[in-house]
C-alpha cells in the first residue's frame, strides 16, 4: 500500500445527504459521530462540502424532486468515491415503495457500493457498512 493510499483510507471524510428519509437513519448517523459510537477513531469526519468528501452516506429513497440534487452532489465528489445506502428505504424503497413520488432505492439514480439494511439502521450496522466501504475504497486505490 502506497503512502497516498494509506493516507486516504486512514482519513476518509463523509458527506451525509438525506433524500426523503423519515429522519430515523439520519439521527443514527449523527449518533455514530458522538463519542458513544465514535467513528472518528477510523479517522472519519463529517463534512458539509461534497468536494472534500470520499464517502457519500444516503438515507431514504430517491424521489422525483430530490434526485437531481443527489446526482449533483455525487458528480461534485472527487474520484475515487464510494456510496453507502443507509436503511431499507435507501436500498429498495422499503415502506414507501408504493408512494407516488418515490422512484425506489437510490441505486436507480446513482451507483451504490454498500447497502446497509435496517429500519432504522442501527449505528453499529452503519459503522460496519462504512468500514466495508473503506475496504472497497482501498481496493479501488490499489488498482
Amino acid at each position: 500500500m502506497g503512502l497516498l493510499t494509506k493516507a486516504r483510507v486512514k482519513s476518509p471524510w463523509l458527506l451525509h445527504f438525506c433524500s426523503s428519509s423519515c429522519n430515523g437513519c439520519d439521527i443514527e448517523i449523527l449518533a455514530c459521530l458522538t463519542p458513544y459510537y465514535d467513528v472518528e477513531r477510523f479517522g472519519i469526519l463529517h463534512m458539509g462540502n461534497p468536494k472534500h468528501a470520499d464517502i457519500l452516506l444516503v438515507t431514504g429513497p430517491a424521489n422525483r424532486r430530490n434526485y437531481k440534487v443527489l446526482q449533483n452532489l455525487y458528480a461534485q465528489m472527487p474520484d475515487p468515491k464510494v456510496v453507502v445506502a443507509v436503511g431499507t428505504c435507501a436500498c429498495t424503497g422499503g415502506v414507501f415503495h408504493n408512494c407516488y413520488n418515490i422512484m425506489g432505492g437510490i441505486d436507480k439514480v446513482i451507483p451504490v457500493d454498500v447497502y446497509v439494511p435496517g429500519c432504522a439502521a442501527r449505528p453499529e450496522a452503519i459503522i460496519d457498512g462504512v468500514v466495508l466501504a473503506l475496504k472497497k475504497l482501498r481496493g479501488e486505490l490499489e488498482e
Binding site: S20, N63, R65, N98, C99, Y100
Partner: peptide
C-alpha cells in the same frame, strides 16, 4: 420546500 415529499397520505389509501 418539497424536497422531502413522498406522498404518504396517498400511500395510506393504498394499504
Amino acid at each position: 420546500i418539497g424536497y422531502m415529499h413522498r406522498g404518504i397520505e396517498k400511500g395510506c389509501e393504498l394499504n
